[in-house]
Design a protein around this nucleic acid. Sequence first.
DNA 1: CTAGTGATGACATTACGTGTCATCAGGGTA
DNA 2: TACCCTGATGACACGTAATGTCATCACTAG
Lengths: 188, 188
Amino acid sequence: MTRWSPDAALRLEEAALLLFERQGFSGTTVPQIAQSAGLTTRTFFRHFVDKRDVLFLRDREFPDVVGAALTGAPENLTGIELVKAGLLNAAVELEAWREPILTRQKIIASDEQLRERELLKREHLAEAVGKALRHRGINAGDCDLLAHTGTVIFDLSLKRWLYAPDSPSLPQVMTMAWADLERLLEGP
Amino acid sequence: MTRWSPDAALRLEEAALLLFERQGFSGTTVPQIAQSAGLTTRTFFRHFVDKRDVLFLRDREFPDVVGAALTGAPENLTGIELVKAGLLNAAVELEAWREPILTRQKIIASDEQLRERELLKREHLAEAVGKALRHRGINAGDCDLLAHTGTVIFDLSLKRWLYAPDSPSLPQVMTMAWADLERLLEGP
DNA sequence: CTAGTGATGACATTACGTGTCATCAGGGTA
DNA sequence: TACCCTGATGACACGTAATGTCATCACTAG
């Protein structure tokens, strides 16, 4: 294709994951990552806005994908049904990636700066979901509440699924979490 | 008391807010803030872990206060009642501070790095709430779900209250948001 | 009077992140 | 073939954030 390997971002991500596992996040410098991938520091920052960003390469398209799924969902669905269906659909796609996601999650959990970035990514997901709901004509005052509630369920379920010793499928965990929330809110 | 003004952190916060409003967050340097407060850069970083932290000085005790309120709440409350009551109680305390909170919120909204930190603070609140719920003997599997749902309601309500042209009280907004969520989850 | 405490100043240093220009392979066009 | 254009990268300089370390000096306790 070009004179350079076309996968600079992927090579940087791979090198970063390896170094983060061995030396920790804060114990690894960007020049180390770049050199390990055969590139320069400047090129690292062309592909990632900052050092933390390299751990979230796989999340870039996620909000748009989920948003598109919501926008293209069947008619006659309520807001809550849309959110459930859209996030459940995304959960199915993740099912095959448990191991690499778990590896990454352990790195994120080890550093508060990374947890912070993870929360921002969750917020971006919530914004995409909220936007899609508005686009579908859902009652405007409810969109943000639905979107944020959905991403909370999604996030909690993802972690239960990752860390559960005997793990049921992610969609199953999510469905159970929705049921839990409904039970809790309806009262005794 | 001491040879120095005892309110170094407060003076730094005041100077920072002024500069952020005039020049923006990224357009202001830490040396500027420190000099404006009559202190050195090194002292700034003794009071705040990083540049962003100066905007969240008022939030430091908040999770612990809410957690203590939950721990000391009346007996015989369910998990959901505890969360509602605890956050409603916190909302009452905030009622008098609408203007300064709004000022700060506008700065936060202007910079993604600050929104990111805000999300981390929200997460700390959720952790404190979850911990208090566990301490109260609430069903362990429900605590995180309740805590995160509560903080989502709290956060959305706070922003509605801040930006509503005709603002009902924050507790009122929160109560309405809880009712909205219950209605949405119970379905038609 | 003296020793100890604690917040600050002063200085050095590392690492993050950005601006800018040069380089060079491949693709399109005449 | 010859030419220009595009885009990703390298090389270099630079400002800023953030931390480690030691010195300073008012206040306090005894």
